[in-house]
Design a protein around this nucleic acid. Structure first.
Lengths: 161, 161
DNA sequence: AGTGAAAACTTTACGAC
DNA sequence: GTCGTAAAGTTTTCACT
């Protein structure tokens, strides 16, 4: 889908505060409230905006500990096998297959280090997992909501739109 | 801050859809619209809810490639040094200091693999960086907004509230 | 894309538990 | 102290230009 400058500005405004009114966004980007609404509706339908969510301080809900776990899997494990398995753990908040020695990298949130340990133990027991290698997060330095900024043409990269 | 069951249900509803009306949330959790609003205001003031954001499909904005980069730093590098340095890169969407051989793990979003390469090159040139080890993401399997689910008492862990 | 009016939602005030 | 109801003020929504 084609996104023009206005669409990008509207998205940026909504990423910053999803509860701004259409009139406020309109002032920022130079459009009337109804024009903004039409574009937001279109952006949602097209899938560019996938939803609106409250940002929570994980610690406030008890998720005080996080870890990254590399997964080393058996030769013919499919990404979908890994996806299905790890999706069953609420503690796994992110997962991706990656290049390099490991097959996948998991991002885990837990209540404490003991909890992390238990989750890794259970994941390591999945049939396709050969071994795991984990790193506990000491302190989080950066945590941007994805899409806050836009790709910058100065990188010499292709910028769609 | 103390969160009771109602607060947690309200947060869960808002994480799922931050643009639900207070009346809708009230129906789900069993409160009136104004009672829900009062609690949401309190949750925002206390910092449990840090904001509301549009969720964007990164690919729609041109961020089609992601990578994880381990940073190995000089002996007396402080976490704040790393934080300050990497915060200047819009491509760095996540960063944390970790246990293990590496000192920090960065999460990078870029427009393509060439772009990832350029960013790593520039980060590797930071004065405190000794070396880097990167893994390109092949496919993302899980990407939960943090706090979607609540810690489960069955894990035997401390659940605040 | 903008305008304006109706419907819906948010916000505040007040009384009850 | 927290709830629900209700009135006032905004915002959303939609037909029309």
């Amino acid at each position: 889908m084609e996104l023009d400058r206005l669409d990008r500005d509207i998205i940026a405004a909504l990423v910053e505060d999803a509860r701004q009114t259409y009139a406020e966004i309109g002032q920022e980007v130079g459009l009337s409230a109804s024009a903004v609404k039409r574009r937001v509706d279109r952006l949602r339908e097209s899938g560019a905006i996938t939803g609106f969510s409250a940002m929570v301080a994980p610690a406030a809900l008890g998720w005080t500990t996080e870890a990254y776990v590399e997964l080393f899997c058996q030769g013919k494990t499919k990404p979908s096998d890994i996806a299905l398995a790890v999706a069953r753990y609420p503690e796994v908040v992110g997962a991706a297959t990656i290049t390099g020695e490991a097959d996948a990298l998991l991002h885990i949130r837990a209540t404490d280090v003991r909890h992390v340990e238990r989750v890794i133990e259970r994941i390591a027991a999945e049939p396709f997992v050969v071994r795991t290698k984990s790193a506990i997060v000491l302190s989080r330095l950066v945590d941007s909501p994805p899409g806050t900024t836009l790709p910058d043409a100065r990188n010499g990269s292709h910028v769609p739109g």
